[in-house]
């Protein structure tokens, strides 16, 4: 009854006038985004359709870069590895974070706030140094190896700790933990407690109640966390460079090389666009799948 469908009306303004004000408010942000996002991405697309000889670009258009990006086996390996590592990181991070978020939301009671603060403090320092810390910890003469040798548990440093996909996964699962804990916590916190009581009242035990009520209702947080982690980790450069080694290098490393040492911008552009598209497709497919699965559980 109140405000019959017209949210735009303030202080004597009519609807259309209000809408106009709204567009004016949005305009600066959209302009910045157009300048900083749309135009540059368009340019990347243009570059990716060119050939580069020396430092000058060819006149005509070509799909040669895409042919090579999709055709060359080493690139394909890199794409699959990047997606695989990110997928694994996402899975591990979310699985590890879920019980933590659950604990804070349902069990921490009064100490909830203290827990939230305690969980976020590690993320208040440089991302670079958080990643680097793992290199120090896992390294050949790093913290673990020197510690274990000192204790006499091993004679030679363990070499399987660093410079492989495993170290990348561990490091990223640590670096992005907050991005899993917080969204999942928020979605758990939002759940109306009376729904849980209703489920118990209707005969569900704790496990069934969790599977049939808590988990489905927290899925938005889980999905959000997964996307928030999957997208940036696929394109991460710092972690594979510092702790990945040759066996753990990812797509961002070759993109950087194309723009840096090699200086082949069209090739770098094509690589960037293909990886961006791949990430978007996988993330989109995941969201749809997760929604479908959630609907099925109910």
């Amino acid at each position: 009854m109140r405000r019959q469908g017209n949210g735009a009306n303030v202080a004597g303004g009519t609807g259309s006038q209000g809408a106009q004000n709204g567009y004016w408010l949005l305009a600066p942000t959209l302009a910045v985004m157009a300048l900083g996002l749309a135009a540059p991405l368009g340019l990347v697309a243009v570059y990716s359709l060119k050939n580069q000889t020396g430092i000058s670009l060819s006149e005509g258009w070509t799909l040669a870069q895409y042919g090579e990006v999709l055709g060359r086996a080493s690139y394909r390996t890199l794409f699959w590895r990047s997606l695989g590592i990110s997928g694994l990181v996402t899975l591990v991070t979310v699985l590890l974070a879920y019980p933590m978020a659950y604990f804070v939301a349902f069990k921490a009671r009064r100490a909830k706030f203290v827990w939230l603060i305690a969980l976020t403090i590690p993320f208040w320092t440089s991302y670079l140094l958080r990643v680097f810390a793992w290199k120090i910890i896992l390294g050949f003469d790093g913290v673990i190896n020197s510690g274990l040798m000192r204790l006499g548990l091993i004679d030679h440093p363990l070499t399987f700790l660093l410079y492989n996909p495993f170290s990348v996964v561990v490091t990223l699962a640590h670096a992005w933990a907050a991005f899993a804990i917080l969204p999942i916590y928020v979605s758990l916190e939002k759940i109306d407690r009376s729904l849980l009581e209703a489920a118990t009242d209707l005969g569900d035990g704790p496990l069934r109640r969790f599977l049939r009520v808590t988990l489905p209702l927290s899925m938005p947080g889980v999905i959000g966390a997964a996307v928030l982690i999957f997208v940036p980790t696929t394109g991460d450069y710092v972690t594979p460079t510092l702790v990945g080694g040759p066996a753990g290098s990812m797509i961002a490393n070759v993109i950087e090389i194309q723009f840096g040492r090699i200086g082949n911008w069209p090739m770098g552009s094509a690589l960037a666009l293909v990886s961006m598209t791949a990430v978007a497709l996988v993330a989109g497919a995941f969201v749809l799948l997760a929604r479908w699965a959630t609907a099925r559980v109910r």
Binding site: M1, R3, Q4, N9, A11, G12
Partner: peptide
């Protein structure tokens, strides 16, 4: 939904 609140809001000036 009979329009009474809208009428009131027009008197107050929140709707034209």
């Amino acid at each position: 939904g009979c329009g009474k609140t809208t009428l009131l809001r027009m008197i107050a000036g929140f709707e034209t």
